[in-house]
Structure formats: C-alpha cells, structure tokens
Design a protein around this nucleic acid. Sequence first.
DNA 1: CTGTTAGCGCATTCAT
DNA 2: ATGAATGCGCTAACAG
Lengths: 336, 336
Amino acid sequence: MRSRIEDVAAAAGVSMKTVSRVLNNEPNVRDEMRQRVMRAVEKLKYRPNLSARSLAGQRSYVVALVYNNPSRNYLMEIQSGMLDACRDSHYNLVLAPVGSPRQRKTDDLKVVFEHFAPDGVVLIPPLTDDASVLDFLDEHEVPFACIAPKHPQGRIGVMMDETAAVLELMQGLVARGHRRIGHIKGPPAHGACQWRFKGYKDALRQAGIDYDPGLVAQGAFSFESGIEAGNQLLDLPRPPTAIFAANDDMAAGVIRAACQRGLAVPHDVSVCGFDDTPIARHIYPALTTVRQPTSEMGRLATVELLARIRSQGAGDMVRVEHEVLFRESTQPPTRR
Amino acid sequence: MRSRIEDVAAAAGVSMKTVSRVLNNEPNVRDEMRQRVMRAVEKLKYRPNLSARSLAGQRSYVVALVYNNPSRNYLMEIQSGMLDACRDSHYNLVLAPVGSPRQRKTDDLKVVFEHFAPDGVVLIPPLTDDASVLDFLDEHEVPFACIAPKHPQGRIGVMMDETAAVLELMQGLVARGHRRIGHIKGPPAHGACQWRFKGYKDALRQAGIDYDPGLVAQGAFSFESGIEAGNQLLDLPRPPTAIFAANDDMAAGVIRAACQRGLAVPHDVSVCGFDDTPIARHIYPALTTVRQPTSEMGRLATVELLARIRSQGAGDMVRVEHEVLFRESTQPPTRR
DNA sequence: CTGTTAGCGCATTCAT
DNA sequence: ATGAATGCGCTAACAG
C-alpha cells in the first residue's frame, strides 16, 4: 500500500501537521525537523494523495487551457509548454475546448467549472479577447492568464510585440525593393491580428507608401481561406509584388494559389507568413515568417497564473522576443 | 456555495446513500425515489465533488494518454477523440509524455502513477509495442487500451487492417502501370509500420513483381528523414517510378527531394503517404494517402478502456475502416 | 516553533 | 429497498 502522511509523521517522530508544513514549504519549521521529515519521505517513498489534498484544501490543483479553434500546431505547442510548468508545480492540466456547435461558450465553460473547479485558467487567441469569456471569469473571480491579448492592461500572462515584429518583416520586404505589398488579415476576433495589421500600415507609412485598402483581403487563418484571399489579390489589375499573410497556413494557401495560376514564388510574387509552424519549412519554397516562442509562451503564462493563484496581487504580463526569418519565399520584385 | 450530496438528500427527503445510489446508477432504488432525487439534483444544481468522490471511492477518475514522440497531428487527433469519450463519462484526461532525454520511460511513468494514480491508460504507437511500458502496466495491474498495436492478441483497444490498406494502395499503383515501386519504412519500433511493410511486400507478390530490398529505405517519420530516404532511392541507377512512404511527413519530404533534383511529381515519380494529415492537402501536389479515422480511434480506445475499468473482463479490440485516397501525387509512369 | 482536533464531501460497510 | 455510521488522506484553525 501507499504510505500516508501519518506514516511519515510516525517515522520522523513528529506530528502530521509538521509533515504537512514541510511538504508545502510553509514557514515555522526548524531545519532539523525539515531534514528529519524529508528523510522519512524518501524512505517511505511518500507521495501526497491529490484527492485528499484537494478535498481538505478546497483547491483542485487544476489549471484549464480554454480554447476555441486555434490552429492545431499552435494549440499543441501551448499545451506542451503548459504541461512543463504544471509538472514543475504538481499541478494538473485540463483541456477545455468551448463553443461546440449550438452551445454557447459560457455554457461549456460552466460545465468545466462545475466538474473540475480549476484554480485558474489560461486563455489563448481568439478567446483571449472574447468579452463573454472574460466576463464569465471575472464574475466567478477565477484567476486567469492571457496569451497574446489585444489589451494587456491589467491582465497577467504573456505577449510579444506583434506590431514591431510585422514592422521588421515589412522593412525587410521594403529593403528588397517591394512597394506594392498586399496583406491578408486574420479573423477579426483575433486581437493580435489587429496589431499585425497595424504593423503592416505603420511600415507602409514609414516607407512613404500610400496605404491601399484594395491590397488588403480578409482571411480566416485556414489554408483554404489563404487560397481564396490570395486569388483575390492576384486577380487585381496591378497585383502586389509581395503578400504578407497573418499566419503560415494562409501564406501556404497563397503560394498554392500562385502556383495554380502559373506564377512562381518568389520569382513572380514574394510571400510571407507568421508563426513559423512546421508547414513553413515543409512547403516549397520555404516560408519567410516570424517565429514566436509558442511553447515557451504557454509555459510562462502558466507560471504567471500559478503565481497569482498562490497570492492575490502576484503575476505579471511577460514579454517575449520574436525573430524574423527570411527564407526562400521572398526576393526582390521582378521588373515586368 | 456549492450544494452537497447531503443537501440533495435533505431536499428529496431520503438518505445520502440513496442519492449516491441514484447518481451512480446502482440497483435497488424504486423509480419513485429515483425521480425525487433527480428533481432535487436539478433544483439544487448539484454536481458531485470530484476530489471527495475519488478519495472515498479509491479511484482517480483519470485516464492517462501515454506517448513518446508521435507526430504532432496524430497526437492531437487522438487526444481530441479521447477528450470526447472522457467528457461523456465524467472522466479526466491526463497527458503523460514519457522518455524525456536521459530519463527512462518507466521512470517517467512511475512519476505519473504516483501523482495521478490513473484508473487506466491509453497507449499509442510506438509505445503501444514497447515491452518495458507493457510490462510496467501489467505488473501494476493497470487496465490499458492499445491503439494500432503490432500484436492485438489479448489486448483491448482499436486497430485497423494496415496490411490491407497498403495492399489496396499498392494495387492502385500497380493498376496505373507501376512495376518499380520503392518504400520508405517507418521507425522499427513502430509495430504498425511493420504491417505496412508487409502490405508492400504482399502487393508486390500478388502482382508478380520481385521484391527488391534495394528499393526499400529506412525512415524515421520526419520530413527530414523523408528527404534523405527519398534522395537515396532517387539516386539509384534505376530509380523507382513510384515511392510509398509509411507516413505523410516522409512523403512530403520525398516530394521535396524530387523537386530539388528537378524531378516533377507525379510526372517523373509518383509519391504516396499514409495518415491523411493536413500536410497531405497543403503541399503541392496533394498527396495520395490512406485515411484512418484517428480521432475516432482515440475515442473508441477510451470507450473500451472505460468498459474494462468498470468491469474486469470487459472491453474489446475494435476494428475501424480505412480509406485510400488517390490524389494528385500519383499517375501512371512516364516512359523514359 | 510544534501538536491536537475537526472536518472537507463522498462511498462503503453493515444494519434494518 | 433504504438508512446510519465510519473513514478515505489531508489541511486548517486553534491551542500550546
């Protein structure tokens, strides 16, 4: 059988409570006691019982990853980073997809809360900007961390400077001689994409290029929406010489659209994406894109969340660095 | 505050035990009582407390997905299917990556068991054929379900007829006139790949084509390993006119390798993969491949596992159907 | 600094 | 077919 805290207490010759103190890093224990307890723990291979701990402590030791329909790869990376952080703190990760067909997001959320009673939540785009979800969490007074929120003020979590990243990417295109640069926007609900759009416009202004709304198409983050938006831009009387899509999947769709109409990438049109997902390296030509440390962002958001769970005011909005990667899909424009 | 079983009992005018009986579908309750309890549950919005239930019942209501390093997409699909099954049965899914660098798989497993004490485990390839993991689970008498095991005898879980699927795929190639068909094997530890390899050889035999070991290369399931193995086969004095890779990522690598040496797919060489992951439709040309209902397989494996958890002998090895998808990456060989 | 006592909310005996 | 008592393993409030 598994040993219990009582057994450890007996073996160490102390009370249960002292063992509890040591295990939970509480103050008011002499070093000698601490040592004795630790030795007993080792000897008996004691591991606390999660259920008992939760029941008595009125905590679940669960954090939930709440998501809508992000890209599979993005979700996977976030999840993997969160797992690392959870393991380090003996927390458990629960996956909470919400917004199933014909079901309101808050109804799904309610079910998750009734069942798991998570001590905290991590939100990723586009849910990180969803008013109904944010209101629900605020009402229930559940600590939560946001990843890449549109409005970081007063929130904890992790973000990067999306605008600056796009600015840098666009400057690279301009430096290569592009003046007609198209953009494919991400889903309107995705706040970070609005910063990417801002970066696009800022870069044009800095380069003294007039902003032309006709060069901007609406996408939905999917490969298929990239094909469609790509066709729309390439159908223009004077098509762009470069297209910046707000994520890699759409950029891959643009490349497909270009190929299908006999245009070579990057010879006839340069393409770039955002995220540096595996597809960026797997398609031909390899995609110029912006790398963000997605897995690390999942880990950091969880770390901040756990800090806040431990104490009211704790936790920050952490910033991470991006990296612009120029690969095969971009080159100077060809005179035609 | 949240209502407790005691409150429900009081509201329904019955004992706690009767409420417990109703909620757990135990026998020996009159219909009238059952109705009364259900009404009280509705009225009080009662939801059982997971921790209390686990503590008293000596069960964790947790199933673990134990994995090594499968393809991200595959893992995601399995996970998503498992989540569905878990939600339906009020179980919780715990992710258990094992075999971190310098850590033995069983050591990682031990940590997961000490912490979460899962009531059962789902294994996916290649771990589903890993002796050390299987032995560990058998020793600890933990119910587990296998997905796509090499040896299904005496196990529960879900599988498809990999050999038949490849046979069908190969027959399609042969019907299009291919006689020199290469194969890129998956990782040796991946049992299902051995059945795919068998399907490859069986198909050759049926078509009266001599098996040529020189046309078979070893891959590792990654895009990069596909490039390498593809180059190896295309470097042959008499290269194959078609190449069947044991998964889509490697097939994508073969296409890249072909392109880089100026060969057109499918004009100069046909390529096909296995799994029908998103990359199969995102690369150009779209990949001929075998679709397996991955997410459904995750769900079914969990359903069988939960059946076994509930009662000793229950649970089966379920079979699912494949589908061969001929797309752009295959055509009849060109005379050269 | 350390120990004692009393639940946390439920399932599980064993009565009736 | 139903109910009362007991305890799962731990933390929390209080006492020393």
